[in-house]
Computed example of a mutant assay.
Amino acid sequence: MQLDQDITTITEGKTKILVPKAAIESKVPPMDVAFFNPRAKLSRDFSIIAYSAFIKKFHGPKTFLDSMSGVGARGLRVANEIKEIEHVYVNDLNPTALELGKKSAEINNLQNYTASEEETCRFLSSFSRKGMRAAIVDIDPFGSPTRHLDCGIRATVHGGILSVTATDLQVLHGLFNDACRKKYYGTPIKTHYADEIAIRLILGCIHLIAARLDVEATPVFVENNMHYYRVYVRILNKSDTRDMMGFISHCRSCGNREIGKERKELCDICSGTMIAAGPLWIGSLFEKEFLKDMLEDIPNHTVDKKCAKTIQRCILESEMPGCYYTLDELAEMRKKSPASLEKSITILQKNGYASSPTSFNPTGFRTDCKINKILELFSSQIPYPRQM
């Protein structure tokens, strides 16, 4: 391997990482070199904050498993930037990627970094025995993570965190419903809040698999970007007696949406026919105290400024109803230019409704106000834009 010609060193967070130049220079990370996705830096920043906030309050062996590591960027950062972590185990099937990770570990003077070349589930299964399980398990595949969820859950210690990425956006957005039903046990619908439906389908799948293993899996943090979804769930080795699966029913006629255990056939507002997404997770997406711990821990790390703003939005929406609205969606309905997010939320709050921004969409908000009343309030209190 010609390190001087083919490889470059970048700094992400506080960590130096050796990566192929082609991965930096190409718009899409090439598959014929050791994998590294520079666009996933924000995701790795969130991971550092989440893992650091979690591990500070965790009592037990503080180990981290990265089952599909590529050049090891996430694992290297965890080993180097979270001092409470005792050991990091990374795994990949690409020997070049593993070698780069080892050399990066040497550059950062890491003594707590071990690499292995195994099939993903074989690697995770080697940590599934009592006394071997990890505090944090990371599954970050190309496409769907579903084939690895059983192994990932088994490798996570009681009270630990399992973090899962999905990049098969076309499946989760309703272009291939049969594939989605097979992989995630539910189907999506195309809406302005499709990102939330996708996240809930992933969580629903994890919840069902965990329940089959007599394990409880509860989300503490979720995040999304243009090319991936990522969820963080707390694993408890106890039978899950909760009924957290249901449907999102959506009315194409008036835009009404409802989340509940049963799918609705007719809209309560306009009596139109409703279509349903699911079965999917209908519980909370965030654990508020965990988010507060994340926000408090940010000054200890070198991360993107977007992280704090996003987590602040997560805190605000953590106890809000499901299924957000977007300003563009409402503008289309009203046939007017979108109002500002701040003004829209203020109108709802002044009229006695709960409302907050959402981390899922920069122009999105959550509220307990129904769509017909939202439109009524906005029509009466947001004037037409002046004509030039």
Rank of each mutant, 00 (worst) to 15 (best):
K309E: 13
S249A: 08
S249I: 13
Y51R: 08
G75V: 08
I269L: 11
K102E: 13
G13M: 06
D268K: 11
E84H: 05
T156K: 00
P299G: 05
C369L: 02
Q5A: 14
S284Y: 04
E376A: 04
T96G: 05
S125V: 14
E99M: 09
N237F: 10
K83E: 11
K14W: 00
T367F: 02
E329W: 07
N300H: 09
R257Y: 10
L93C: 11
R230V: 14
S52A: 10
I49R: 00
G322N: 11
D297G: 00
T15C: 07
K56N: 08
N177F: 01
S249H: 05
C307I: 15
S340A: 06
S337C: 09
F221K: 07
A79R: 03
Q387E: 14
K16D: 14
A134M: 09
E289F: 03
R147T: 15
V19H: 02
A210W: 04
E262R: 11
V33L: 06
E342Y: 07
T218H: 00
Y324N: 09
I202Y: 00
K336Q: 15
D214P: 12
L377V: 08
S144F: 04
A339W: 08
N351C: 05
E319H: 12
C307A: 14
S340W: 03
R230P: 08
K56P: 00
D368I: 09
E317S: 12
V19M: 10
D240N: 10
G160S: 01
P95R: 00
N224L: 10
A179N: 10
V71P: 01
Y185F: 12
R230C: 05
R242A: 05
I48M: 10
A198Q: 01
V171A: 04
I10V: 13
Y232H: 09
H173E: 12
S47D: 11
I298C: 07
E99R: 09
T310R: 04
S239M: 11
G72N: 01
M274F: 02
F290V: 14
A97I: 11
R212K: 10
S344N: 14
